[in-house]
Simulated scan of single mutants.
Amino acid sequence: MKQLTAKEVETMLIENKDLNLVDVREVDEVAAGKIPGAIHIPLGLLEFRMHELDKSKEYIMVCRSGGRSGRACQLLESNGFKVINMAGGMLDWEGKTE
């Protein structure tokens, strides 16, 4: 599984790279702040909402610490998606939130 650190993702956003971020945390966690522009799909709903994602794009998966996003990567990879796990998750995130 491909991985990026939170700092690498933040740097890519600062450089205005076109990123597709998917936050798989629960609603109450996201309410406390998420990376600007990230799509919110709780891990428990990902299997039922993956049709909303485009297989031609690469997605960076985000959660609190990197565990759930790792499971999300496994699920999406097994269904033909290109994904990267943000290691360390929001616990390591020092960038802006919304």
Rank of each mutant, 00 (worst) to 15 (best):
M1Y: 11
M1N: 13
K2R: 14
Q3V: 10
L4K: 15
A6T: 00
A6D: 00
E8D: 05
V9G: 00
T11M: 14
L13C: 09
E15K: 13
L19D: 02
D23G: 04
E26S: 09
E26D: 10
V27W: 10
V27M: 09
D28W: 07
D28V: 14
E29R: 06
V30K: 08
V30P: 03
V30D: 02
A31S: 14
A31L: 13
A32Q: 11
K34W: 00
I35P: 02
P36F: 01
G37M: 05
G37C: 04
A38Q: 03
A38Y: 01
A38G: 02
I41Y: 00
P42D: 08
P42N: 10
P42C: 11
P42L: 04
L43I: 09
G44L: 09
L45G: 08
L46D: 05
E47Q: 15
E47W: 06
E47I: 10
R49F: 12
R49H: 11
R49L: 13
M50Q: 12
H51D: 13
H51S: 15
L53W: 03
L53T: 12
K55H: 07
E58A: 15
Y59M: 06
I60E: 03
M61Y: 01
S65V: 11
S65D: 07
G67N: 15
G67P: 01
S69D: 03
G70A: 11
R71L: 13
R71A: 09
C73S: 15
C73P: 03
Q74F: 13
E77H: 15
E77P: 09
E77K: 15
G80K: 09
F81T: 12
F81S: 08
F81D: 08
V83H: 07
I84K: 06
N85F: 04
N85S: 07
M86H: 01
G88S: 02
G89S: 04
M90L: 14
W93K: 01
E94I: 03
K96A: 10
